[in-house]
Structure formats: C-alpha cells, structure tokens
C-alpha cells in the first residue's frame, strides 16, 4: 500500500457509526473491526448481515446499534442479498452508495460460499467483509471450515480439529475479482485503509478477510485481544496482504517481516486455551507449513 496514503490515529475520523452499549462480548475483536470498517465506509452505505455475532452486536428489535441501513438475511444468502441491494440501487438511481456484506467465517466460507462464489463470478459491485474468528462463536464455539488444526471447540472437544483451516481468501481470489485483502482486528489502521481502498474501487467485487480474535472462543483474557491478534501476524500464521487485479503483495506488519525472524508459532499457541491439546507433532507441522509459506514469499 502506498505509504503516502496511510491513515494515522491522528487523522482517523472520530465519527462513530456504531453505538456503545451494544451486546458484543467484553473485549470483542469484532467490535474493533466493525467500528473501524464503518468509519472507512461512511454513512452512504447499506449493509447485508447474516446470523452471526454481528447480528447480536447490531441490536435486538426495536433498537439498532448501527447508524446505517441494514438488511438482516438468512445464513447462506449474504452475498446474494448484497447483490439484490446493489440491483435495487441501480434500479432506483442510488448507485453511488456502498453495498457491503458483513459476515462471519462460517457464514462466508462454509454455508455462504455458494452465494459468495456466485456474486464473485458475476463480478457484483459489492464489498464483502468476512470477520474470521475461526469458529461458530455465536452458537457457542463449534468448529468451522476456518478453524485451525488442533483447536478445541465444542464439536471437537477431545481430539481437537483434525483438519487444516480452509484458505477462504485464496478461494475467493481464484475467481479473479478486482480486490482481495486480508487484515486483522489488531491493526485497525491497516484495515481502515483497505476498506477505504475497496470502497474506492467501485464496479467489481471486493473481498476483505479480517482475522478477529475472540476472547471467550479462543480462551484468553479480554485485555489481550490486540496482543493475540498481533502475535498471529508476528508468527507468520495470519498474513496481511492484498491481491489487486491479480497482483499479490504483503502489506503492513507482514511486509515488514520479510527477511526477518518470525516469532515461533509455539509462542502463539501458548496464549490461548483452545490450543491446549496440541501435540508437539502438530506444532512442528504447523511451523513447517508457515516456514514453507514464507520461503515462497521470499523466493
């Protein structure tokens, strides 16, 4: 990302589009992601949201925690609903508005992937933001396709998840859409700039995948949301990048890691109770995967 355009804390707008007193858990990573993304989108925005933690954060009838128009939709239909909003905007002469789908990782990479794939293939003029807290948190921490290997969840209670995390942003990138980016709740300014950029790239489908630490689901104290998120990036487990018109580049903290030493993944695993069942074998396997991935970045 162009350094000159980078937003700083000081010039970041203090306009808030999310009201306090909402029902998000204490220390919720999504709280940061949502607040920041809406700052970047501004008030000329329409949202489509499936059932998820965000549904609860957004408020129970008749009070809304968000100062934006929003249509809540069924679990599998987020991207199609955003498509419908955009079609209506064109049909009613309000095409300047941002149309944004905002969904969790299960709603995106599992049940919602068909609608999302369809929207990407059609090149729908929408921004899709996935906040990835790596399990079905709203229903009480069940495994999802994006839960990492080894993680204890309520549906992988003894052995931990046996399969690796589904690489959703790569699947979306394979559709050849204009913009795919990853971001982290721990780096809100980077997230802000990516959402801004996505909003400016009107015309095609834009996808942003945001790593979003969850204190109760991951098992860490509420005060460590930022620390845990940053550590994931420092280990090279979750990388910040952009794929713009097919061109891949690491950004922000991940770009700074190129050619430098990364924090061993074992350190990250120690910070969360969800990894308590990890065997040394899985830890070594995960470290090897990360090392190979980073070797490819430098090659």
């Amino acid at each position: 990302m162009d350094n000159a355009k980078k937003t700083t804390i000081l010039n970041l707008t203090d306009d808030e589009l999310v009201n306090p007193g909402n029902r998000a858990c204490s220390g919720c990573g999504l709280g940061i992601v949502y607040r920041t993304a809406l700052k970047a989108l501004g008030k000329d925005t329409v949202l489509a949201v499936p059932p998820s933690c965000l549904t609860v954060l957004q408020g129970l009838y008749p009070v809304a925690a968000t100062k934006l128009p929003c249509v809540n939709v069924t679990f599998a239909s987020t991207a199609a609903a955003a498509t419908g909003v955009r079609a209506a905007m064109r049909a009613t002469g309000r095409d300047h508005l941002n149309v944004v789908a905002f969904a969790g990782d299960g709603g995106t990479g599992d049940i919602g992937i068909q609608a999302l794939s369809g929207a990407c293939e059609r090149g729908e003029d929408i921004i899709y933001i996935c906040y990835d807290n790596e399990a079905y948190m709203n229903t009480g921490v069940q495994r999802s396709g994006t839960t990492p290997k080894g993680v204890m969840t309520t549906t992988t209670p003894i052995k931990g998840k046996l399969q690796h995390k589904k690489d959703v942003p790569s699947i979306i990138a394979a559709h050849g859409i204009d913009y795919v980016a990853t971001a982290s709740a721990a780096y809100p300014l980077d997230l802000y700039d990516k959402v801004k950029k996505a909003a400016a790239m009107k015309g095609g489908t834009r996808y942003i995948h945001v790593h979003t630490p969850c204190p109760p689901g991951w098992g860490f104290d509420t005060r460590y949301t930022i620390k845990v998120g940053k550590m994931s990036v420092a280990t090279g487990l979750f990388d910040l990048y952009e794929i713009e018109k097919g061109k891949f580049s690491l950004t922000g903290e991940s770009a700074k890691r190129l050619g430098k030493e990364r924090t061993p993944i074992a350190e990250y695993f120690k910070t969360q109770r969800r990894f308590k069942g990890l065997t040394q074998e899985i830890i070594d396997e995960m470290q090897a995967i990360i090392d190979d991935k980073w070797a490819a970045y430098t090659a």
Partner: peptide, 18 residues
C-alpha cells in the same frame, strides 16, 4: 415488521458488566 431504529444502549447499561 421487525425494523429497528438506531439508539445507544441496546444491551442496557453495559457498564454494569464490568
């Protein structure tokens, strides 16, 4: 229909959670 208006404190005075 279920159509909500924006307002603070949907979750009540969440300061009491502290």
């Amino acid at each position: 229909i279920s159509i909500s208006e924006p307002g603070p404190g949907d979750g009540g005075n969440t300061g009491s959670w502290r």
